[in-house]
Structure formats: structure tokens, C-alpha cells
């Protein structure tokens, strides 16, 4: 546990020294702000036309989840790939530290960073809450943000796992991005066309576990298990790759 924390702490601090992390955070917040403003305009116009509905936290978390797909690869690409390239992997692998502690520590560092960014976006629901009378649905707010946190955890887990396979950040970035795009958008397609096995693809569809439940205020154990399993799978893959690299 202590080793995990040591690795995570260094990694977290590292993000604040890295331009990429600032770019990612800035991009996330700016794009979310634009979406937010457009949504406010849209809902206001509808409300004035008297057929409107009340916005909820989903107008923030909906675009947020989408942005995570595109931005998180930039946060995870460096984690293990750069250690490999810089030769510092030799330092970590000869330190009294288990391989999985290293991988989990790396993941935790990136997770704490994205939690920080998520905390900053909390400003949007606060603003929204003040605009809407008598306030937004608190249940959806909690559930949707829990969803964002779980999706982030899963993406980062997969990202760390992929970063362990490469010694080039760029290669890790694109491999991660493609994996995210497949898991988020594409894996659901076969479900609509396949005569058999559609359920499997429907279950694997990452966005369905978010948009169909958490983002509309439904907390299902199945969705939590899904995201946590995905996180664990990513971290396990990362550890396995590091272990395999030792034997090569």
C-alpha cells in the first residue's frame, strides 16, 4: 500500500509539471464550458417556447464522458512507456516494489489527477442549480458524476495497461485512443446486426453502461461491476506485460 502511494504521489505531482496535463485539463474545461453554455441557451429558448424540459446534470456529464475518450489517452500514454524509454524502468524494477504495485500506483496517480479535474467541473452543476427553479435533480447529479468517475477509472486502467506495452508515448497514445474508440463507440455495432451473440457485444458496450443508466440517475450494481472489472483488467494486463518484459 505504501509503495502504491509513493508511486501515485510522484505521478500526481508530475502532472502539474507537464504541459500535456495542463493542455488536457484546459481542453476538457473549455469544451465542457462551451457545451454547457450552448445547452443553457438551448434550454432557455425551449422554456420560452413553453414546451421545454428542465435540464439536469446530464448536460455536463454527457459531453464530459465523450471528452474523456479523446483526452485520457494523453494522460496515460506517458505512465509506463516513458519509464521504459528513459531507462528509469530499471530503477523501478530493481527497487523493492512489486510489479503490480507499480502499475496500480501509476493508475492511482492519474486517477487522482482526473479527480482533480472532475472536481473543478463541479462548478457547472452549481451554476445550473442556481439557474433552475427549484434546483436540479440531486440524484441524477450524484449518479452521473459517479458514472464519470467510474468511466475515468476504467479508461485510465486500460490506458496504463497499454502504456506498459510500449516504449514510445506516441505509440501508446494511438493504441490507447483506438482501444477507447472501439470500446466506447464501435463495440455496440455488432449487437445490432448479429443474429447470435448480440448480448455479449451489448454488454461490452462501454457507453451503454453510462448513458442508459448512470447518466440518467440509475445506479446499477451491474454497471459498477462492469467498470471496475474493466479497470482491473487493464491493471492486470499492465502488470503481466511488465512481468513478461523481465523474462524476455
Amino acid at each position: 500500500m505504501r509503495n502504491i502511494w509513493t508511486i501515485a504521489k510522484r505521478e500526481y505531482k508530475q502532472y502539474f509539471n507537464s504541459p500535456i496535463a495542463y493542455i488536457v485539463a484546459f481542453m476538457l474545461l473549455v469544451v465542457l464550458g462551451i457545451f454547457f453554455a450552448l445547452n443553457i441557451v438551448y434550454f432557455t429558448r425551449n422554456a420560452m417556447a413553453t414546451y421545454g424540459s428542465t435540464p439536469d446534470a446530464g448536460i455536463v456529464t454527457g459531453p464530459f464522458a465523450f471528452m474523456l475518450v479523446l483526452s485520457l489517452p494523453a494522460l496515460t500514454m506517458r505512465l509506463l512507456a516513458d519509464e521504459q524509454r528513459m531507462g528509469t524502468m530499471e530503477l523501478l524494477l530493481t527497487a523493492p516494489l512489486r510489479d503490480w504495485e507499480l502499475v496500480v500506483g501509476k493508475w492511482l496517480g492519474s486517477f487522482l489527477f482526473i479527480l482533480t479535474v472532475i472536481a473543478v467541473t463541479w462548478i457547472f452543476p452549481i451554476i445550473l442549480n442556481n439557474l433552475v427553479v427549484p434546483g436540479i435533480d440531486q440524484g441524477i447529479l450524484i449518479s452521473a458524476y459517479l458514472g464519470i468517475i467510474l468511466v475515468s477509472a476504467a479508461f485510465l486502467g486500460i490506458g496504463v495497461g497499454i502504456s506498459a506495452m510500449f516504449s514510445s508515448q506516441i505509440a501508446a497514445f494511438f493504441a490507447t485512443l483506438v482501444t477507447f474508440i472501439v470500446l466506447w463507440w464501435m463495440i455496440g455495432f455488432p449487437a445490432d446486426v448479429l443474429p447470435v451473440g448480440a448480448d455479449v457485444f451489448r454488454y461490452l458496450d462501454m457507453k451503454a453502461h453510462f448513458y442508459n443508466s448512470l447518466n440518467v440517475g440509475v445506479i446499477n450494481l451491474a454497471d459498477l461491476v462492469y467498470y471496475l472489472s474493466l479497470t482491473a483488467l487493464g491493471l492486470f494486463t499492465g502488470s503481466a506485460f511488465i512481468e513478461a518484459r523481465r523474462w524476455r
Binding site: 508530475q14 509539471n17 507537464s18 528513459m86 531507462g87 528509469t88 524502468m89 530499471e90 530503477l91 530493481t94
Partner: peptide, 13 residues
């Protein structure tokens, strides 16, 4: 064991 590898493993930042 204390180990100094051939490429000194440092974090420049």
C-alpha cells in the same frame, strides 16, 4: 542491493 545502472536512471523534471 544498491544499483547504479549504466544509463543513470533519473527524472530530469
Amino acid at each position: 542491493v544498491g544499483y547504479l545502472p549504466e544509463t543513470v536512471p533519473l527524472y530530469p523534471e
